[in-house]
Design a protein around this nucleic acid. Structure first.
Length: 160
DNA sequence: GCCAACGTTGGC
DNA sequence: GCCAACGTTGGC
């Protein structure tokens, strides 16, 4: 067995009206259904590993920003919502024998209090390259560097 | 509510 | 395989 590789860090975006950090706290764990973007799919399928850190970002809310922490709780597996015609995320083109879309499990870790707002991210030295602050950045799953992770956590307190 | 960014679709 | 049209995301 290969030695455990370095922990990686991610930012995952949701609208609180769809799935919020409060929902995740209530559920403890969820699977990240509904991603229909190949770049994001590839990260879940190929790169995420159990124990990776997640910045839980909320869009479409005031103020926008990082509201909590989570962690990756499984490796990638086929997205069940793609196969269910009743599901909003149903994709008739995805063949269960050769699934197009993948999910990972995501487990609750903590709320951030206060949340780290988008405005703060934009004005904090060291975060200039973060994908989430770039204009037109629509990717719902983004890689975060260890340095960025460290800086973000130093901007707030964690509460469970 | 607007509209820029940008991924996807479909005609050719 | 190109690229214009279209739809969606998401900040403002």
């Amino acid at each position: 067995m290969a030695s455990k590789r370095q922990q990686k860090y991610w930012l995952m975006k949701t609208e609180p009206g769809v799935y919020s950090i409060d929902d995740l706290k209530r559920d403890g764990k969820t699977y990240w259904e509904g991603v229909r973007n190949y770049q994001a799919r590839n990260m879940m399928r190929d790169e995420m590993q159990i124990g990776d850190g997640v910045l839980f970002y909320h869009s479409q809310v005031k103020p926008m920003g990082i509201y909590g922490l989570a962690e990756i709780a499984s490796e990638g597996y086929p997205d069940p919502s793609a196969f269910d015609p009743e599901e909003k995320y149903y994709d008739p083109k995805s063949d269960p024998a050769n699934p197009t879309w993948m999910v990972v499990d995501v487990a609750y870790v903590a709320h951030l209090d206060p949340p780290v707002t988008l405005d703060t991210l934009k004005t904090t030295p060291g975060l200039e390259k973060m994908m989430v602050i770039q204009r037109g950045s629509r990717l719902s799953i983004q890689p975060v560097t260890p340095e960025e992770w460290e800086i973000v956590l130093n901007l707030t307190k964690q509460v469970s």
